[in-house]
Amino acid sequence: MKKTLLATAIIGALSATAAAQAATVYDQDGTKLDIYGRIGLGIEGGGSQYSDNTYIDSNGDLQGQRINRSGDFVNVGSRLGLRMSQAITSDMTAFGRLEWRFKANSQDAAGNGFDQLRQSYLGVQSQQYGTFQAGNFDSFYLQFVSSPFDVYINNGLHFAGNGKQSRGDSIGYYTPDLEGFTAFLQLKNYSERGYVEDPNAPLSSGQHRTTEQGNVIAPQGGVRYENGPVTVGLGFVEDVQRGGGNGEMMYGLIGQYQFTDQFSARLGYEGRGNSNSASYANYMENNPTKDNGYNTVGLGATYTTGPWAFTGDFYNINRDDGKDNSKAWSLGGYYKVSSAMDVFVEVNDNDAKAGNDRVGQQFDNLTDDAYWLTGVRYFF
């Protein structure tokens, strides 16, 4: 099997410490198939003192039961994927991608093997006309706006991530590079085809009731500018309730400047309007740890030297609806053992306070401990 080292996929400094490798299974007459993946193992500990909507006190007690929050051996983003492409013309290429997650830390955790379909999409790319794709993929907002802050393996990103109104039933388009500018647009469809029309009807196995909203389209779009050391992304997402949002528009303006080959700094803002709808108020009542409107400002930096990379980020999260602000921080250290292996340690504190406005109930004065994760990853 012929093997070639693919170009490194840079996503912040963390990716700079671990070159993305792949095995080319087939490459002939414009048709190519690569197989790639990684195995990640680690130990984690600490973290939030509450789980979902249930408060856990400082001793780890939950409804009279002891909750073990000590260190634990865990899987760290292990996955296996395929990249496919075929040249249509000298300018146009058809492509596809298929990627699964699996748990590598134990046989019991792995179950029958793969536990999630992470990516599955098809598309056409042209250097002249741009790229169109459809299926299940990371949000374009992450790819073109919030990606400078996406440098942590776990828990460090406090701007919108890869699943924001994305991951399935989506179509998207982005332009080719236009003198440093790239514009993008993505549409996510939430369908009720096949649902039970009567919202009061009893449900049989596998059925779902329709909602008052019916089918919903969640758009996101914006523009990114890249020129030399400067990267700036401006984007929006209609954060519909069907996709876990509050029904209001979310905006982001995030940038990065590469001062030297070793040092870069990033600054960003993201905000979402406050919803006054009755349906979201009811949702918040049943999910007190969720946020409504917010304004988040993030500041971070990355420094690399030889095989080492270090990251640090700080976020100020200003919540609406009378909830306390949070000052979250993250630190990371990464060592490149070889072109295919790295070891790492991350520490972050979300300063979680969502839900502490429910005076007199068990959600009062929620706090959290610093979360830590250390481990090793091998890329192939």
Rank of each mutant, 00 (worst) to 15 (best):
G77W: 04
F184L: 11
W329M: 07
G123D: 04
S120G: 07
E99I: 02
L253P: 02
Q143E: 09
S338M: 04
V345Y: 11
F95Q: 12
T374W: 06
I254G: 00
T296V: 10
N356L: 07
R209E: 06
F114D: 12
Q65W: 09
G111A: 09
F73N: 00
D261P: 07
Y257K: 03
V345P: 00
A7S: 09
Q65V: 10
K32L: 09
I35A: 04
A278P: 01
G312D: 08
G228A: 10
G243K: 06
V232G: 08
N154C: 13
S275T: 14
N287G: 05
Y334P: 04
L331F: 10
T304H: 05
Q116I: 05
P288M: 06
R224M: 15
H208E: 12
P229D: 08
G60L: 04
L142T: 00
Y50I: 05
Q241Y: 00
G333E: 06
G206N: 06
Y55R: 13
V216G: 00
K353R: 08
L122R: 09
P219C: 11
N356A: 13
I88N: 11
N200K: 10
L299Y: 02
E270T: 07
A22I: 01
G255C: 02
V230G: 01
D291W: 13
G96K: 04
N155D: 13
W372A: 15
E179Y: 02
V376E: 08
Y269R: 11
Q256T: 05
T182E: 05
N189K: 01
N112T: 12
G268M: 03
Q241M: 02
Y280G: 12
D357G: 12
F363Y: 09
R69F: 06
N292L: 02
D368G: 08
H158A: 14
K290R: 14
L82Q: 03
N246V: 08
A94I: 12
N154Y: 12
S146V: 12
K353F: 00
G233C: 02
T231N: 14
G235I: 05
V237A: 05
A22N: 03
G40F: 02
N75W: 03
Q49S: 14
V216L: 07
L98F: 10
I11H: 00
G130H: 07
G244P: 01
V232R: 00
T182C: 02
G273E: 03
P229H: 05
A340G: 03
N350K: 14
T211Q: 14
D324R: 07
A281M: 11
N75K: 11
Y50T: 08
L331R: 10
G332N: 09
Y50C: 04
A370F: 01
A265L: 15
N325P: 00
Q127V: 08
N136C: 13
Q65H: 12
S330R: 15
G252N: 03
G77S: 09
D29P: 03
G332V: 07
D320R: 08
A134S: 13
F236E: 14
A18E: 11
L80Q: 05
K3H: 11
G375T: 08
L331S: 11
T367C: 04
Y121R: 10
I43C: 00
L157C: 02
E99Q: 10
A218T: 11
A20H: 00
L299C: 01
R358V: 05
Q133A: 13
K327Q: 10
Y174G: 12
L142I: 10
S58A: 07
Q63A: 14
W329C: 04
